[in-house]
Measured scan of single mutants.
Amino acid sequence: SGVNQQQLQQLMDMGFTREHAMEALLNTSTMEQATEYLLTHP
């Protein structure tokens, strides 16, 4: 699906929903950016 499943699982383990985590990974290129994205786009 174009996203790193390991990163997706890590974000879900942090408490984010699958949909939200996927959106973040699709819009960013690193785990750090994805986390930042999730925190700034709740």
Rank of each mutant, 00 (worst) to 15 (best):
M31L: 14
P42F: 15
V3H: 06
M12S: 03
T35L: 15
M22W: 10
G2C: 15
D13N: 11
T30E: 03
L25C: 05
S29I: 06
A24K: 00
G15E: 02
E32N: 04
Q10N: 06
H20V: 11
A24I: 01
L38Q: 02
L39V: 09
G2F: 11
Q5M: 14
Q6L: 11
D13K: 10
N27T: 06
E19T: 10
Q7Y: 15
S29V: 08
T28Y: 06
T40S: 12
E19W: 12
L39Y: 13
T40A: 14
S29K: 12
V3A: 07
N27E: 05
Q6E: 13
H41N: 07
Y37M: 05
L8Q: 03
S29T: 12
L38W: 05
Q5V: 13
M12P: 00
E32M: 05
T35F: 15
T28A: 04
T30G: 05
Q6I: 12
N27H: 13
L11E: 00
T17S: 14
A21M: 01
H41M: 15
M31T: 03
Q9K: 13
E36Q: 08
R18Y: 10
H20M: 15
N4Q: 11
E19K: 10
G15P: 00
T28Q: 02
N4S: 10
Y37K: 12
L11A: 01
M14N: 04
T17Y: 08
E19G: 10
L25D: 00
Q10M: 10
Q33T: 04
A34G: 01
E32L: 06
G2V: 14
R18V: 07
S29F: 07
E19D: 14
H20A: 13
T30F: 02
P42Q: 15
T40W: 08
N4E: 07
L25E: 00
T17G: 14
S1K: 14
Q7M: 13
R18D: 04
T35H: 14
D13A: 12
L26T: 08
G15Q: 03
A24P: 00
H41P: 04
M14E: 04
L25S: 02
E23L: 08
L11M: 04
S29M: 08
Q7K: 07
N27I: 09
E23N: 07
Q5P: 14
T17Q: 14
V3C: 10
H20Y: 09
A24L: 01
M12Q: 07
S1P: 13
L39K: 15
Q7W: 15
L26P: 00
P42K: 15
S1L: 11
L39T: 14
T17M: 11
L26V: 09
H20W: 11
L39H: 14
F16I: 04
Y37I: 14
L39I: 10
D13S: 10
Q10G: 05
M12R: 04
M22H: 07
P42H: 15
M14V: 04
F16D: 01
T17E: 13
L11S: 00
V3D: 06
L8I: 07
T35I: 15
Q5K: 13
E36I: 06
H41Y: 14
Q9G: 06
V3K: 06
L38E: 03
Q10R: 08
E32V: 05
E36K: 06
D13L: 08
H41G: 10
T17N: 14
E32K: 07
M14F: 06
L39F: 13
Q33R: 04
Q7I: 08
E36T: 04
A21P: 00
G2T: 12
G15I: 00
Q6R: 10
E23R: 07
E19N: 11
H41A: 06
A24T: 01
S29C: 13
N27G: 04
F16Q: 02
T40M: 12
E23Q: 09
Y37A: 09
T35G: 04
L38T: 02
E36G: 03
N27M: 12
A34L: 04
P42T: 15
A21H: 00
T17V: 10
H20P: 04
L39E: 15
H20Q: 09
M14K: 05
F16S: 03
E23F: 12
Y37Q: 12
L38Y: 03
Q9A: 11
L8H: 03
G15Y: 02
L39W: 09
Q33I: 02
R18L: 08
N27Q: 07
Q33Y: 03
L38V: 04
Q10P: 03
G2N: 13
M22G: 04
G2R: 12
S1Y: 07
T28D: 01
T28I: 02
E23Y: 13
A24D: 00
A34E: 02
G15F: 03
R18C: 10
Q33F: 03
L8F: 04
H20I: 14
H41E: 10
E36V: 05
S1R: 12
Q5E: 13
G15A: 03
M31P: 03
H41K: 05
T35M: 15
E36P: 06
T30I: 01
A21Y: 00
L38P: 15
L39N: 15
F16P: 01
E36N: 06
Q6P: 06
Y37W: 14
D13Y: 06
L26K: 09
E19A: 13
H41D: 12
G2M: 13
S1D: 12
S1G: 12
T17F: 08
M14R: 05
L38D: 03
Q9L: 10
L11Q: 00
M31C: 08
A24V: 02
E36A: 06
Q5S: 12
L25G: 00
H20G: 05
E36F: 04
L11T: 00
A21N: 00
Q6Y: 10
S29W: 06
F16M: 02
N4D: 12
G15D: 03
V3Y: 08
A34P: 00
M14Y: 07
H41C: 15
E32S: 05
L11G: 00
N27Y: 07
T30M: 01
Q10L: 11
Q9I: 10
L39A: 15
M14T: 04
